[in-house]
Nucleic acid binder design. Structure first.
Length: 793
RNA sequence: GGGCGAGUGGCGGAAUUGGUAUACGCGCAUGGCUUAGGACCAUGUCUCGCAAGAGGUGAGGGUUCAAGUCCCUCCUCGCCCACCA
């Protein structure tokens, strides 16, 4: 079969695309704006098939929207700060800057090679001073509004490499670089108060048109728990241990109290040798041990007891690391009869248990399991006999407690002891008090005279230039902040900068933000559901509260793509040698075939995993070759009605499916149309051109070539999306499935618009139907207009 | 351990609100064309059955005139979170 020369056709088409490319005019008010965003890439060096999947499919949608008359913003940039640049720099002896910029250059060429229509005029790179200047400025705004603060916190530390590790570098509790078990070290760190936004981040999800499972993942991550704070007085003192519980109804079942190793009471009694030893052992426990070994350990704090808030009974106090210092109050009331963890700890240490909810499965003698369900209170003083759920808040009141809500989410630790990141725009006065760098000194540039080989300190501390800079600007005794910002901050606002990337006076244009926000559709990977997407939502809301952005949410629709696997069905990785190099496939089959293959591989907005199949690419190439061959049998006659119907049907399907990003079925609709066209002796030119228009977003190069070479005027991509008389979609006749008792007994063809009686009458002339009825009258007739007739006997 | 999602031909996957299960493509089979073909064309391709017909969407039950779709129980797989009191 004739096959087209994809190399020359695609090269020429890309030259035409480049010549015709005009930056999106964001101030254009004549057309409806549509902001289509995909997660900007980290410049790791090579585009892999996953990038293709993301960019090619969003490009199809961008092209489709333009044909529908939308003013489409489809930008690209680079998430250019990040750790791999440092590792690569150490490995290859280049600077992170050199390595990163070389990679970006390479990736730009690759992105062009797949025929995307991204708007390069809006390109940003987060490592550019002109970009991070505003990252820093926004950080200073958060600081000024008490949304950024410092406190001592544990960081991950690799004892072998003598370096602090970013969370991303810790894989299953070991250092990504050397495999050593990671320890914790306490350093003063910067945080953003995402917890202050926990409730809004959770509640505002309800109105977002996201897939429900993505919203659930964020809800779970935020983790709302309603409960109470209760105070247990420490005997013979006026001090209290405050605990958080979601089960105040079990208060009478408390047999001891547990504090976390970080709790003040534990530190206060570290003079007890057992306590000291336990705290020491806990500190030494590696991340991995904590994850793998869930056995409940802990020791009693001697000579300390607390009083039950209602009964006044004296209860022992333990320190145990199954209680987290960073959640709630860092202390819990233990109810071993009705809580799994307390049960395990009590059983191990032979502590008493007390059943207060019936029917509890635990008998005090056997102590084989605990009961966490609901029931009737017993052993609960005046509350005996009441339903636990109903009496819960009365118990809180009786205990002098207070109703409260806790969230699982923690404040966002944003400082990184790394080099290749945005410098935190902070300096310290001689007293050590932090001050933000004033706006006139931004960008607060990343120094270059830095030793970023790990030596146990933040690399920036080695910069003489940074020291001199601080002394020069702020005076003797002032010192710089040496940490850089988490790159998730860079990516928390990049979609705002795309609107106004060259602005030297503002981070973005308020006017354009009003016009273009929120982002209409954001496409990316599911791994970011509880990271980037949550960070960006928080950041955006914070800016909204500072009146810096006009919307309370950054993104309207969110589409998560699936994962392209290797030909062996495994995740692609260099190690398993199953990485598909897209450049090679494009070389052999053409970008259009690869684009169509990725579109056809499966539904985009579902968490599917799709193995790469080489024969799938050849199949798409075959499809495109058939489209090409069809161009050789065109006629100039008017399209007959049945072909118009084919086109109208295809148009309706492609449009509806493309809107939902179901590009696999959109393409199948085009294949159906092609099959019908091939039945014809010749295809009317106008009909063929319409077909090319429908296919244009998927295979932009070939369709453009064929459109031009068969007499089309201008680029196919500049032509409007075809429109058809809706009447073409309505057939003259309709096919009705006839069932008897729910079983299919035949189908009839009848004039469209026939009444139920007419359908029934015709159905009764079918032999199979009357046979199934066996002479009986149907007791009930169900008619689904235009579709189905069911005769119930 | 908890949460979420998914199980449909040999394979990727189709199937608006419950309304003809398996669209489209791959693979395979047979035939054609051909010196040849891993190219192309035609036909076929859920299972059983010569057929009429019957059965069939992980298993079992339920609701319904009608269930891949809704409800319950179970099994398997995937992803996320992992002592969050």
């Amino acid at each position: 079969m004739a096959t087209y020369d994809h190399q020359s056709i695609e090269k020429e088409a890309q030259e035409r695309f480049a010549a015709a490319a005009t930056p999106t005019d964001l101030s254009d008010t004549s057309r409806e704006p549509y902001y289509l965003l995909f997660e900007f890439p980290y410049p790791s060096g090579d585009l892999h098939v996953g990038h293709w999947y993301a960019y090619a499919l969003t490009d199809m949608y961008a092209r489709y929207l333009r044909m529908r008359g939308k003013n489409v913003l489809f930008p690209i940039g680079f998430d250019a700060f990040g750790l791999p640049a440092e590792n690569a720099a150490i490995k290859y002896g280049k600077t992170p800057h050199e390595w990163t910029y070389a990679n970006m250059e390479r990736m730009r060429a690759q992105i062009r090679s797949i025929g995307t229509t991204v708007d390069w005029s809006k390109e940003i790179a987060t490592c550019e001073p002109s970009y991070y200047r505003w990252t820093q400025w926004l950080f200073t705004k958060l600081f000024e509004h008490n949304l950024a603060y410092r406190k001592e916190a544990p960081v991950k530390w690799c004892p072998k490499d003598q370096t602090v590790l970013a969370n991303e570098q810790v894989i299953d509790g070991v250092c990504e670089r050397c495999g050593t078990e990671v320890e914790e070290k306490r350093l003063t760190q910067w945080f953003l108060k995402i917890t202050e936004y926990a409730e809004r981040l959770r509640a505002d999800l309800d109105a977002l048109p996201w897939r429900e499972d993505m919203k659930d993942a964020q809800r779970a991550w935020i983790g709302k728990s309603e409960g109470a704070k209760l105070r247990f007085q420490i005997a013979d003192t006026t001090d209290f241990i405050e605990v958080f519980t979601t089960r105040p109804d079990t208060l009478f079942g408390v047999t001891y109290v547990v504090v976390a190793p970080e709790h003040a009471l534990a530190l206060q009694h570290a003079n007890q040798s057992a306590v000291a030893a336990y705290l020491e052992a806990t500190k030494k426990k590696s991340e991995r041990e904590r994850m793998e070994n869930k056995e409940k350990t802990g020791v009693r704090i001697e000579d300390v007891s607390v009083l039950h808030p209602i009964t006044g009974e004296a209860l022992p106090v333990f320190v145990a690391d199954y209680v987290l210092g960073s959640y709630g109050t860092g202390a819990v009331m233990a109810v071993p009869a009705h809580d799994e963890r307390d049960f395990a700890f009590a059983q191990k240490n032979a502590l008493p248990m007390k059943v207060v909810i019936l029917p509890g499965s635990l008998s005090n003698e056997e102590k084989v399991s605990c009961y966490t369900g609901n029931g009737v209170l017993s052993n609960s003083g005046t509350f005996d006999g009441r339903q636990n759920t109903e009496a819960m808040w009365d118990i809180v009141q009786a205990a002098g407690g207070e109703r409260t809500t806790n969230y699982r989410i923690r404040d966002w630790l944003v400082s990184r002891q790394r080099y290749w990141g945005c410098p935190i725009p902070v300096v310290y006065d001689p007293e050590g008090k932090p001050h933000v760098v004033p706006a006139e000194h931004l960008p607060w540039e990343l120094p270059t005279d830095v030793d970023f080989v790990p030596n146990g300190k933040s690399p920036l501390a080695s910069s003489q230039e940074l020291h001199d800079r601080v002394t020069r600007i702020f005076g003797e005794g002032w010192t710089p902040e040496y940490d850089t910002l988490d790159t998730f901050i860079d990516s928390s606002w990049y979609y705002l900068r795309y609107l106004d990337p060259q602005n030297e006076h503002q981070f973005s244009s308020p006017e354009l933000m009003r016009k273009w926000l929120p982002v209409n559709r954001y496409s990316g990977g599911s791994e970011h559901t509880t990271m980037h997407l949550l960070f960006a939502r928080f950041f955006h809301k914070a800016l909204y509260d500072l009146a810096l952005v006009p919307t309370s949410e950054p993104f309207a629709e969110r589409f998560n793509r699936g994962l392209i696997l290797g030909t062996d069905g495994q995740k692609m990785s260099k190690r398993s040698g199953n990485v598909v190099n897209p450049d090679e496939v494009v070389q052999e089959y053409g970008a259009d075939a690869v684009r169509c293959y990725l579109a056809f591989i499966g539904p985009y907005n579902e968490p599917g995993h799709y193995p790469w199949k080489p024969e799938g690419v050849t199949a798409m190439r075959r499809f495109l070759d058939r489209v090409y061959v069809l161009s050789q049998s065109l006629s100039d006659e008017a399209a007959p009605e049945h072909l118009l119907r084919v086109l109208a049907t295809a148009e309706a399907k492609v449009a509806a499916d493309t809107e939902r990003f179901k590009l696999n079925t959109a393409l199948s609709g085009l294949m159906v149309a092609l099959n019908a066209f091939e039945e014809e002796k010749s295809v009317p030119r106008a009909a063929y051109h319409d077909f090319l228009r429908l296919l244009a977003p998927f295979a932009p190069h070939l369709t453009d070539h064929l459109f031009i070479t068969t007499g089309g005027e201008g680029s196919v991509h500049a032509t409007p999306w075809p429109a058809y008389d809706p009447a073409l979609l309505v057939s003259d006749t309709m096919t009705i499935v006839v069932q008897v008792g729910g079983k299919r007994r035949g189908e009839i063809s009848i004039a469209a618009g026939a009444s139920q009686d007419e359908v029934l009458a015709k159905a009764l002339t079918e032999a199979a139907v009357t046979a199934a009825l066996g002479g009986k009258e149907p007791s009930r007739v169900i008619y689904v207009p235009g579709k189905l007739l069911n005769l119930v006997v």
